[in-house]
Structure formats: C-alpha cells, structure tokens
Design a protein around this nucleic acid. Sequence first.
DNA 1: ATTGCTTGGTCAAACGTTTGACCAACATTC
DNA 2: GAATGTTGGTCAAACGTTTGACCAAGCAAT
Lengths: 337, 337
Amino acid sequence: MKKKRISITDIAYALHVTPSTVSRALNGGGKVSEKKRLEIIALAKELGYRPNPIAKSLLENKTHTIGLIIPEFTHHFYSRMLAGIESVTSKAGYQLLICTSNENQNQEIKSTLTLLDARVDGILATISKMNDKFEHLQEVLDSGTPLVLVDRFSEEIETPYVISDDFKGAFSAVEYLCQNGCRNILHIKGPDNLSTTFNRFMGYKEALRKHEIELNEHLILEGSDPDLFEKITSCMKNHPLDGAFTYSDYLAFEIYKVASELKIPIPEQLSVIGYADEPISTYINPTLSTVNQQPFEMGVLGAKYLLNRIHDPTIAMETSRVETKLILRESCRNLNN
Amino acid sequence: MKKKRISITDIAYALHVTPSTVSRALNGGGKVSEKKRLEIIALAKELGYRPNPIAKSLLENKTHTIGLIIPEFTHHFYSRMLAGIESVTSKAGYQLLICTSNENQNQEIKSTLTLLDARVDGILATISKMNDKFEHLQEVLDSGTPLVLVDRFSEEIETPYVISDDFKGAFSAVEYLCQNGCRNILHIKGPDNLSTTFNRFMGYKEALRKHEIELNEHLILEGSDPDLFEKITSCMKNHPLDGAFTYSDYLAFEIYKVASELKIPIPEQLSVIGYADEPISTYINPTLSTVNQQPFEMGVLGAKYLLNRIHDPTIAMETSRVETKLILRESCRNLNN
DNA sequence: ATTGCTTGGTCAAACGTTTGACCAACATTC
DNA sequence: GAATGTTGGTCAAACGTTTGACCAAGCAAT
C-alpha cells in the first residue's frame, strides 16, 4: 500500500523532456537551458520529488550505509559508544545499520554476512568475547569493504582499530593506590581470552613492580568464579588487604558487599577502584573511584577512521589506543588531604 | 576499491544461458532442466554468489529495512527497548536503520525525512519530549509507510502504539505503600508536559483516594526543582512522612540522600518506591523497590505490530498498554513478615 | 560554401534482478 | 498429417538514476 513516489521520469514526461535532462537540471550537470532548468526545479519541488537512493546505489555500488556489529546494547559502555558513532555518521550523511552479536560468535558471523549482503559501505565491529575464528572478518576485508574494530581487536586481522588503553588505565589506578599507601592490593580479573582482561592485569602487575611490591598470587581472583564472594571473604580475612582494583565496577561492588559483611570500612581501611565508570559508580556508597574509558570518544574515532577509509581505501591504517581517565571518588584514601 | 560481487549475469555468461534462467534456477521458478539447474546452483555456490538486495529493492519497492527513531541510547529503558526491537526484526529478516532525535524536535523531523528517503518499509518511533508538531509523522502515514509509536504517543496521530501503563504502575506502587501502613506519602513528579508524568501522578492520587487518604499538596514536589534537596529536607522535617513514591529511580535516590542526612532509616521509618527499574536500583543501599516497565517487551510488541502492518496495511490497528511489574526490594516495609 | 564551435538537448547503456510473453523442439493424440 | 500439449529455454521490459556518446541548430570564422 506504499504510495508510489514521484520519479524523475514522471517529471520528464510532464514537461516533455527526457529523464536525462531532468537529472542534469536537478544535479547541475549543464546542458540544459536556464529556462528549462527553472521549470524542472519548480515542478520537482511542487510534486515533492525526492531522489531514490536505491537506484543510485545500484548504479554507484555504494549505499551510504555503514554496518555496526555490537555485542549488546545494555551495557553503558556500548550505548555511549553507539551514541558517539551515530553522532559522526549522521553528520556525514551515512545511515547506520545495526546488528547485535549477543557475544555469540555464530551470530556475529551471521551478522557480518547480513551486512555484506546489504552492501554496506563499511563495517564497524566490536568482536564478541569468545572469538577464535576470524574468517568472516577476513572475508569482509577480502570483499574490499573497509572494516574498523572498536574496543576489542585481534592481531589476526589487519585493519584499523580503536581500543582503550587498558594497560595504562589499570596502571594509573593501581599506581594511585600504591602512592596512597596501599601495599596489599587485591585484583579481580575479567573474562578469560579477552585482551582487556590481560592488559588490565598487566597494568596491575607493572604498577606493583614499579613500586617494588611483590606480586602475591593469593590476591588475584577470577571474576567468573562462582564462589567469588567466599573467595573474596577468605582473602580479606587471611591477608592485610588495604587496596583493591577490579576488572569492572560490578566486581568492585562485590568487594563492597564483603567489606560491609566483615565491617571493613571503605576507604578508611580499604581503598577500592573499579573500571568502566558505569552509572552505578556514583550511586553506590561510598561512591566508587573508577577508570573512565571515554566510550563516546572511542565511537567517534572509530566512525571517523571508517569514513576516512571509505573515502580513500588506500589511506594509511589509523589506529588509536584511547587514553583513560582515572576518576577519583570516595572509595579511595588520599594521603594528601 | 570495493570488489565487484559476482552477479547473476556473470553466472549466465559462464554457462551460456540467460540471466532469466539463472534466476529461475536459483529461485525455483521452474522452466529449467534438472541438469542445468544443478549446474547453475553448483557454479553459484562455487563463485560465492549472493543476490543483490538493492536490485531487488528497486524492483519490488521494498527494502526489508525498518527505521527507528529513538531519543537517545544511554537510558537503560531505551537500550532495553532497542534490544527487544532488534530481537524480533532480526529474526524476521529485517534490517534496522537507526536515527536519534536527542529529544530535539528538529532532529526528529530530519530523521523522519531521512528514513522516508531511504524508503524504509516501516518506522518505529519514540517521539521526543517537547513535541508539538506532528506534520512529519502525518507525512509518514500519508506516504503509506506503516508507523508505530512506542513509549510516548500523541492523540494527534492515528497509528498503532505501544505504551506503558503508567497509571496502573504508579497506582500499584502507592497502593502497596498504603496497604503496608503508610499514610503520609511524598510524591516527586517528573518533567512537565509528559503524559507519563501526568499519568503516574494520577495513579498516585487514585491510590490515595481509594485508601481514603487525603491529598496533601505539601507532599508533592517537582523533580526539576533546582532546590529539590532542600525541599525534600524541609518536607521530611515538617511532616510525619512514612512513604515516598518518585517519578524515577534517580529521584528516589535523592530521597535516600536526604534520609541519610536526617538519619531517617529506610525502610523502618520511611518506605520508598522508585520507577523504571534502572540498574542502580539493585546497587544502592538499601536496594530500591521500583516499577518495572518491561521495556524489552515493549520493543518486541512495537516491532511485531509494525511487521504486521507492513505485511498487511489494512489490518486493524493494534495498540497496547503494557502492564508494569512492581518490584519489591529492601526499601519498603512489609507488614506481613 | 565549407569548417568548426557552442548550446541544448536526446538516446541508450548500465547497475542486478524478476517475470510475463514468446518460441522452438519434441511428444502425444486423434 | 494436423492439432495440441509439454519442456526448456530466450527476450525484453521494468524498477530509478546517471552519463558518455551522439546530434541538430545556430553562429562565427575562413
């Protein structure tokens, strides 16, 4: 029941000229008298003519659409990233075609195929957690479709990427703890196989090394451990903990729970720093110090890199490790005041 | 630099048949010998042929794409709604084209035009807050493009919609407070001009009326008041408050802050219920009772209505007022246990 | 009068696909 | 031997747009 939109040929017919002339009048390609040009433009306006981008796409082999593959929408990080992406693509006149992978590799592969089928001009992807296959991404590259990876990347796939500087982010957090008197710092790690988990852990280790604190294996826990609460509890009981750095703000909250149970005051006896600057960090008590990854900016950058690549595929690969910001709130002791 | 994808004519040429034959072989339209059919299918597979949906769109005047206009991504409500929408559209084989309005009417109008230009098969929209013009939406309808409004709607525009039952949601929350001994219940209202603000307020009033509690104007505050904290404080000091119902979880948190300042224990002395079931509600202390609006389900429903309309535009208009769920957590007294 | 240039157009192909109309070859029926 | 039906195809139009090639008319220069 969709109404037929008026086309260039309709205008041509009405004015007894050919579609070519109408096209040139509307796009300013010359070869049309001033009088006809005005006539055509007037009629086009009157009839509410709007060019059909589908026809143009077919001809130009371009869709002015970019595809996005994102694990999910609900984490604050991704919605901010999405907002950043949207802000630049919409300004550049590009449409955004969105697919979710649900952190599921098969769905990611399917989404990739869908976007390729849709002939998007480029793809922006955050690869899913448990990714061990990369053929589908290689296929994107092979097809000549520009690809930019955001947030997570793999060395297996040679393409521009924008990631957060997890190492430095973790390092700055743990160094702050060290500088403010912490010597026994717990770390709760993130999901296995994720470069972010690894890099944050490395940042933790490096900060300890720099401040000549020996690494204590007992102070390192796995966030995915089903007995995490008990593990934290026994860790707190058996070690003179004075600091904690966790892979996420949610894991930091687990520490809050145990500390509350054991009546260990934060920050007086235990300084805590989380990661990601989720909204909850300003609402829990005490407010949580954390590491902000600037997801909006990451999205902006990723989208820009992609557009650059679309406009000139021979351009040198642009990659960024986005700086993090240490956000200090009530959960940390500060020796200086 | 995008590689040319292999087309139906390439296959036709290689096999010395016409494109028509290839098309029929691939789509099973008969008129092709079994032998040729298998040959064609084999070659298509070998060459990695994938049909070009752009060409099909041009022919069919359908894009298998639905447009989404959403105010923003960062509120949990919208990201859940988006997830719900995506879950049904992707299953139905539809692409999702996303635009944000940033709660800005001009941008909403622009987005609408963009989607119409893109020839989407239907539009799903959450109209922006300060909406007083509806011509653009009427234009969508006039163009014959199915439109479904989600979360917010206007009587000016006659189309299917899915909204949350704010009245009942508020009513159930306030009634719960009444049933559990509260007689002096504070209400903090939402933004002006929003039907949700009005309806939640009406629900509040109706619950009081039903439980024969007289409405006290002094117990009703504006969430947008810059001196909200002070207003709440003086309200708590001057009235024997025993309950509070707020337009949002964030406003409920303001009450937490004041209560903490005044050393009023929640829920022992004051029961609090928020609205929206934002993630923070399970992380603040005590955990916050709230009203869940089932945004995921709203998205699912909206998308389904739209798809139904796309498949049969003459179908009767489907609208829903989605039930809310009262989520009881630690912030409310319960007389029964 | 011939050549050459400019202006203002038209024509046709192209993009990839589908589909109704047509058609030749062959088999069947009377 | 003529009419009819079936099988396995081809042809061309259509969707809306752009664009290179062509062309006629008018004019100026030789």
